[in-house]
Structures are given as structure tokens and as C-alpha cells.
Design a binder for these strands. Structure first.
Lengths: 230, 230
DNA sequence: CCTCAAACTGAACGATCCTTCATATTCTCA
DNA sequence: TGAGAATATGAAGGATCGTTCAGTTTGAGG
């Protein structure tokens, strides 16, 4: 969590006893289930409470209103995904750039596929709230982690690392989302994913600086930074 | 329009007089405006009617319910985009594969950017309805047109044209959507788009069959098809 | 065991919202 | 020009939804 939610979306209070934590989990899970079963238009406080086995009032003890609940749910979800990406980025430090791309695609795809219905449901719930800040925080986290990873790539350097990272992430995340949206059968989906790896690798090889001892490229980057400051 | 809408989403009647056509246009435009100004949660029949300068009852003369209106609106929009893509595909027949990719990206990006707020608003309204059939029809149209285009590429053939097309379209559409969702500043957005072209071109060069008279590859494709049939 | 805070309940209220239909207006064309 | 068809109106009904709050139940700590 890089940024805390805006005040009007913040939870009212945190659970202090064990049963309260259980209740909160039940509410989150119920929200997902209602979203899957009834769709975003029938995602109502009453239905969520009923499915969670609690009273409506209970939810209002933790959230000031419906949107705050949705916000917290998405925050939770994006947090998990971001953590997985960060873990992968840490694990791949110093590896070859090609391996990094493959790991990135696989991690993101698995994170989304693990509970595909949930992913699809959340894609739809996002509309109900002002999610710009959430997306932005998520993007920043993943950007930073990915940039650090690629900066450590063995025998590879880029003229404009930030743009490369931005391009890779935008296309990977976008493609995965597109695959979900088109509801492709598993085989086709996996085929596209394999091709996506090919595509990213081909791109990397096209934009990476010609092999020339790492030192030189580092020196060049340093030079660029110096000029930026001046 | 490849498939007609499911009956429960079909319009009640078509406008027969000129003023009725004007009214319908006003209703569609008002829907977009309300979506932009008030968001999807405040997208209500009363508000749309008010903004369109007509009575609520008027809308119900053309659509059996709210969702039918949204469905028609999205159908209209996707129709325009699909037509633009098809036009580009027609114009690029026989060109080099690299030029095709660039034209594809540019066309799609311009179609979405022309009225960026509309695009963003519609991305959000999609949730309100069962859009699977719409997306599917759109995808099929674009798939067919794109495949025909690449099949005519000068001096280029692919082992598995369909997969290549599916990959290109999924990634291009997905990336564009991702750029919109992240709300990138124009310069960064355009930078990513330029990189996307690079990426697709690099991918094409990686998967295209080694140069060897077009005849040979055509023969191979024929052979593959024959085996599929058997 | 007792007390106080934390957690939970759910009927009730007010605010929208979608949709209908009896009626009025406008246009077409014979 | 006049009659019938097409188009437009908008108050009213029925349904759903979000949120509150006075009161009850449960758990923790002394």
C-alpha cells in the first residue's frame, strides 16, 4: 500500500476481536460471490450481508458506505497481485532479460488465472468506484519493481529503461485483460500468452543496446543523468 | 453487424420520420454525455431524457428498457470502430507486413482517441450489460479482416496465421485499453504506442517463415489444412 | 463473576429509479 | 384539407436500495 485511501473511502474501524476479523473476511468473500452470481447491478448491501450471514448493520460498522467496501476489496486484491509481481522481480535479479520477461508474463497470468471468476468479477466491480488512485498506486509499485529488475539484467542495458518498462507492463497487463475479456478457450489463451512472451523477447532484443561491456552503457546512462540535472 | 441482438435487447421500433431520427441521435448523445458527466452509477433514464431534451416515455418507444439502449449505443460504437479497421485492412492489401502493423495500431489508436472521453465512458458503461455477444461479434469481424490482410502480405508468410493475428489483435487492443486505463499523459502514451509498433514488428520478423518464394509457404499451408480436414 | 467495550441485529425511513399508459401533438399523404 | 399513423408527454405506481440507530448479544480483562 503506497498511498492510503482518501478519507471518505477509509474504513470506519478495524476489527479488534477474532470474530470481527472473521466477519470482515466473510463480507469480502460474499461481495465477490454476489458479484459472480448476480452481476454488478445486483451487487447490493442487503445481498452481500445475507450471503455473508451477517446483518446489514454489521457492514456499516466497518465501512461508511458501499463504495468504501468495494474500494477496500479492490485494494486487497491489487495488493496481492502487486506482491506477487514484486516477489518475481526480486527472484529474477541478475538473470537474463529474456528470462525476466517470461517470468513476468507467467506470474501475472497465474495471479489472474488462479481464481479466474474473481478476476473477471473484479474487472466489473471497478466501475462502481473511483479507482484511479488504486490503479495508479498499483502501477507505481509494479513499475518500480520491474525497473529495478531490468536494471540488473545480465549483459543487457537500454537507452531508455523507463520507456521500455512502461511498454512491457502496459502491453502485458493489457493483453492479459484482453484475453479475459474475449473469453478465449484455454488452449487459445495459452497460445496467445506464449506468443506474447515471444513478442516481448523480440522487442527486448530490438531495443537493447548493442553488446559492449556493461561498463560503457552504465557510463552512458550516468552521462545522460548528469545532463538531465544540468 | 454480424449477429443481430438477442430479442430481449432489440429496439422496439425504428424511426420512420426525420424528427424521430433526430430524437434517437439526441438520446444516444445524451447517454454519452451523462456517462461522462455523472458516471455510470448516475446514468439513469430520467437524466438521459432530460439531457436529450425529451420525455422519458419517448425513450421507451424505441427501447424496451434501459439496457437495450446501452446495448444499441455500444453496438453503434463498435460498428464504427470495426468499419475503420476494416477500411485500413482493405487499404493495406498487398503491402509489407510491417506497414500493416503500423497502420493497424495507428487506426485503432486514432479511433479511440478521436473522442477520448467517449471511449473512456463506454469502457465503463459496458459493465451494465451482457456485452459478450457484442465483443464477440466485433472480434470476429476484425479477426477476419486482419487475417485477410496479412494473408496478402508481400513476401511474408506465417506457419500459423490465425495465431499470429489473434496475438497481434489481442495485444494491440489490450495495450491501447491499458494506456487509457492508466490515464497516461499524451507524450508517454504516444511513446508507448510507438514502442508497441516496434514490438509488433519485431514479433512479426521473429515468427515469419524464412524467405523462400511465397509458393513454398503456400504449399505448406495447404498441406496443413489438408491434414486438418483428414 | 462482573463490568464495560466491542460486535451484531434488523425493522424502518427516505430517496431514487424504472416503467407504464392515457392523452396530446405533429406529420404524412390521399 | 382531413384522417390516420407516427411521435411525444409526464404524472403516477411499484419496486429496490442505501443507510441509520436504538437495542441486544458476545467477548475480554480485572
Amino acid at each position: 500500500m503506497l498511498t492510503s485511501p482518501p478519507p471518505y473511502l477509509s474504513p470506519r474501524k478495524r476489527p479488534r476481536q477474532a470474530r470481527a476479523a472473521v466477519t470482515l473476511d466473510a463480507i469480502f468473500e460474499a461481495t465477490i460471490q454476489v458479484l459472480i452470481a448476480d452481476g454488478p447491478r445486483r451487487l447490493t448491501t442487503t445481498r452481500v450481508a445475507e450471503r455473508a450471514g451477517v446483518s446489514v448493520g454489521t457492514m456499516y460498522q466497518y465501512f461508511p458506505h458501499k463504495q468504501a467496501l468495494f474500494y477496500a476489496l479492490n485494494e486487497r486484491y491489487l495488493d496481492i497481485v502487486a506482491e506477487k509481481v514484486e516477489a518475481t522481480c526480486r527472484a529474477q535479479r541478475g538473470a537474463e532479460a529474456e528470462a525476466m520477461v517470461e517470468a513476468l508474463v507467467t506470474t501475472y497470468w497465474q495471479a489472474k488465472t488462479e481464481r479466474a471468476e474473481v478476476t473477471q468479477a473484479l474487472y466489473k466491480s471497478v466501475v462502481e468506484l473511483d479507482n484511479e488512485s488504486l490503479i495508479e498506486a498499483f502501477a507505481r509499485r509494479v513499475d518500480v519493481a520491474t525497473a529495478a529488475m531490468f536494471a540488473s539484467a545480465a549483459n543487457t542495458a537500454f537507452a531508455d529503461l523507463n520507456t521500455v518498462v512502461l511498454t512491457l507492463l502496459t502491453s502485458i497487463f493489457g493483453t492479459v485483460r484482453s484475453v479475459f475479456e474475449r473469453n478465449l478457450p484455454v488452449e487459445e489463451a495459452e497460445a496467445v500468452l506464449r506468443q506474447l512472451v515471444l513478442m516481448c523477447v523480440a522487442y527486448l532484443q530490438a531495443v537493447k543496446l548493442p553488446a559492449e561491456g556493461v561498463t560503457a552503457s552504465v557510463r552512458r546512462q550516468a552521462h545522460l543523468s548528469a545532463r538531465d540535472v544540468a
